Simulated assay, not measured.
Amino acid sequence: MENALRPLIVIGGSVLLTVVVGWLADLLLRRAAARRPETPLWNLLRRGRPALQVVLCAALLRGAYRQTGIGVVERHERGIGQLLTLTLIGASAWLVVRIATAVVESVYRRYAAGAGDAARVRRVRTQVTLIQRVVIAVVGVVAVAAMLLTFPAMRAVGTSMLASAGVLGIVAGVAAQSTLGNLFAGLQIAFGDMVRIGDVVVVDGEWGTVEEITLTALTVRTWDERRITMPVSYFTGKPFENWSRGGIQMTGSVFFHLDHSAPVAEMRRRLAEIVGGHPAWDRRDQSLVVTDTTPSTIVVRAVVTAKDSDDLWTIRCEVRERMIAWLYEHHPYALPRIATIPAPDRPDDIPRRHDESPPRPRPAS
């Protein structure tokens, strides 16, 4: 009877105690969240309940599994103890990551709720994301190292590895030169405020929004829903356009190549009519001028402003479309023309300049 009750008491008691402690911890966190609803930390910490229960259960079983009296456990005592130790280390790392993530996310949410500058909020969001990834990477490396050191063979290997750590460090640095460069570039982007999550950028001729920043790569979502992933070192070593830097208001241009007879004054009035009733125009500026001439056309530039890049693209397309349609309907002569027939011969009654030679006779047909 005692042999049957002992494993039930050890295993069942460990599981029951784990469930009770997890329930009490969740209850305390829910009450704390109810008393301080403006603090999101307590609700975020509740996500760590499964990790806490695994840690507690593994610790209890690790300390009492020898008392179960089960034959299988006695025959494989070392292997079961090793497995419980590895589980305890992994669950502890999981719990640390949950707690650190909850603390960092809570700080960000409280900051974002009280901040009025959207650009500054995006900057903090970028930094918080990279901090979380650094914490996860560090905790993961430490947990794996702790797991390996639980094996006796790995301890002996570790002693010899420490003796040659300097040589290995040099070799690893040379082998992982690009990876380390991207890692430091990611930290430079996060805390140097070069580019942030949500910024509108132009890289390699592609226009898009920064969607994700990791320690080694950056993802840009283009206007046609494609994702461009590139190493973060690109943004520290090459020039790129950041349309969200220093404010999101933008000025855009629309160019028209027209005939010399184009009614520029009427086009200015028509531009004012187009942008005046358009919701994408922020009413800061609009103008139309002739910027260049060629032997066959003139270049007319219309300038409009908008509150952000999306509205600027919309109003530029609208101005281009409606202005061309208006010219085609009311002033078709203003559109550029290409001569497709030879010019007629000059009549004989038009006097020639003294430096002109007489026309050559036409060959007989």
Results as ranks from 00 to 15, higher is better:
305 T>F: 10
9 I>S: 15
343 A>S: 15
208 G>D: 13
301 R>K: 01
312 L>E: 09
79 G>Q: 10
290 V>S: 06
320 R>T: 10
168 L>F: 09
65 Y>F: 11
296 S>L: 06
267 M>C: 12
142 V>E: 08
75 R>K: 05
313 W>V: 02
207 W>A: 09
76 H>S: 12
13 G>M: 00
101 T>L: 11
9 I>H: 14
23 W>E: 13
172 A>N: 04
175 A>H: 00
35 R>H: 00
244 S>G: 14
359 P>R: 04
308 D>M: 08
8 L>C: 09
74 E>F: 07
58 A>R: 09
285 D>E: 04
108 Y>D: 09
121 V>D: 11
96 V>F: 12
257 H>A: 04
163 A>I: 07
356 E>S: 04
135 V>Y: 12
17 L>C: 03
211 E>G: 04
301 R>Q: 00
68 T>I: 02
58 A>W: 10
16 L>Q: 06
314 T>I: 03
106 S>Q: 11
229 T>R: 15
304 V>A: 11
133 R>N: 15
32 A>Q: 12
137 A>F: 08
133 R>P: 12
28 L>W: 10
78 R>E: 00
47 R>D: 00
145 A>T: 07
260 H>M: 01
179 T>A: 03
73 V>T: 11
282 D>V: 06
243 W>Q: 08
78 R>Q: 05
193 D>F: 02
319 V>T: 01
209 T>K: 10
87 T>Q: 04
274 I>F: 13
164 S>D: 12
14 S>I: 07
85 T>H: 15
171 V>A: 13
36 R>E: 05
174 V>G: 13
321 E>G: 03
129 T>S: 01
256 F>A: 11
346 R>W: 01
345 D>A: 10
100 A>M: 09
120 R>S: 12
241 E>H: 15
355 D>H: 14
186 G>Y: 10
255 F>T: 08
28 L>V: 13
39 T>H: 10
335 L>Q: 05
176 A>R: 08
107 V>F: 12
232 V>G: 01
234 Y>I: 00
353 R>P: 15
202 V>L: 02
246 G>P: 08
24 L>M: 11
38 E>N: 09
326 W>L: 14
47 R>W: 00
127 Q>I: 06
224 D>P: 14
2 E>C: 00
193 D>N: 06
283 R>Q: 12
25 A>Q: 01
349 D>F: 14
10 V>P: 15
142 V>R: 14
163 A>M: 03
205 G>C: 00
238 K>R: 14
148 L>I: 13
92 S>A: 09
6 R>K: 15
190 A>G: 07
309 S>G: 10
29 L>I: 03
146 A>F: 10
87 T>R: 07
181 G>E: 13
279 P>S: 03
102 A>G: 13
118 A>Y: 14
324 I>L: 05
181 G>P: 07
177 Q>E: 08
70 I>F: 08
231 P>R: 14
351 P>V: 08
235 F>G: 13
220 V>S: 02
221 R>A: 02
142 V>G: 12
299 V>A: 12
21 V>Y: 07
304 V>I: 08
185 A>C: 04
77 E>I: 14
228 I>W: 03
330 H>G: 15
212 E>P: 01
289 V>H: 11
249 Q>G: 10
16 L>G: 07
162 L>C: 02
6 R>L: 07
322 R>A: 14
